[in-house]
């Protein structure tokens, strides 16, 4: 079942006199439950792609369908609510809110939605990500790896259609990196969670089912490495 379809995405920036294309006619689709790694060198456009899929950046042209919804046809507030429910975002710098506890940071999307937190589901996610004994801590009391686990939990809590991770290990030491990639992989398998991860690290990419390589805003390679 197709969960994401990207059609002819183009994103250009105006820089002085010259126009720079961050993305140049990119099209692909992702099946439900797939773990996709997007790789490419710095400036190749991979992060831009991820932001557009997550609906936090807008393309110059092209369309993104998540669960058959054309997300850029949504009004701004509907897009926010769609993102809240259907998209989970993980960043290199965690992007946690420093004044909220671990538990509050994790459940933030649910709280914004005014939904009651499903304790079983929360417990399950927190156990999976091994955060049970850190619930009352504030982000600055945690290590980098722990903070990133909070950020992953936050992305998973709503059981979104798709989780987007932008260099999730970019800021971590090698031990934490291994741990995080393993957790992402685990959540992919355990929750059948569709996952798209941007990285410039080929070795991490090899943990995914499929690798899409982007060079100069174009897909240069798209191969399934594991079924």
């Amino acid at each position: 079942m197709e969960i994401l379809r990207v059609e002819h995405l183009t994103k250009t920036y105006q820089q002085g006199e010259t126009t720079i294309a961050a993305l140049n006619d990119v099209s692909f689709s992702v099946e439900k439950g797939e773990f996709v790694a997007v790789i490419g060198p710095s400036g190749s456009g991979k992060s831009t792609l991820l932001h557009i899929i997550g609906g936090v950046d807008k393309p110059t042209s092209g369309k993104v369908f998540i669960d058959d919804v054309d997300i850029f046809k949504l009004k701004e507030s509907s897009l926010a609510i769609f993102r809240r429910r259907q998209v989970g975002l993980i960043y290199q710098f965690y992007n946690l809110i420093p004044v909220l506890t671990v538990e509050e940071n994790v459940t933030l999307p649910l709280l914004l939605d005014g939904r009651k937190v499903d304790e079983d589901q929360l417990g399950d996610v927190l156990t999976t990500l091994n955060l049970n004994d850190r619930l009352g801590h504030l982000p600055n009391q945690l290590s980098g790896g722990q903070q990133q686990r909070v950020s992953i939990s936050r992305a998973l809590i709503t059981r979104p259609a798709i989780v987007l991770a932008d260099e999730p290990t970019g800021n971590l030491d090698s031990q934490s990196t291994a741990e995080i990639v393993e957790l992402l992989s685990l959540s992919n398998q355990k929750y059948k969670q569709t996952l798209i991860m941007v990285t410039h690290n080929e070795r991490i990419a090899l943990q995914a089912d499929r690798i899409i390589a982007i060079v100069d805003g174009k897909i240069s390679r798209d191969e399934v490495i594991r079924k």
């Binding site: 507030s77 975002l89 992007n95």
Partner: peptide, 15 residues
Amino acid sequence: RQFGILSSVGATRFQ
């Protein structure tokens, strides 16, 4: 930055 994070996890303009 806080609003950015909130926005990325789906906070609406109104929120």
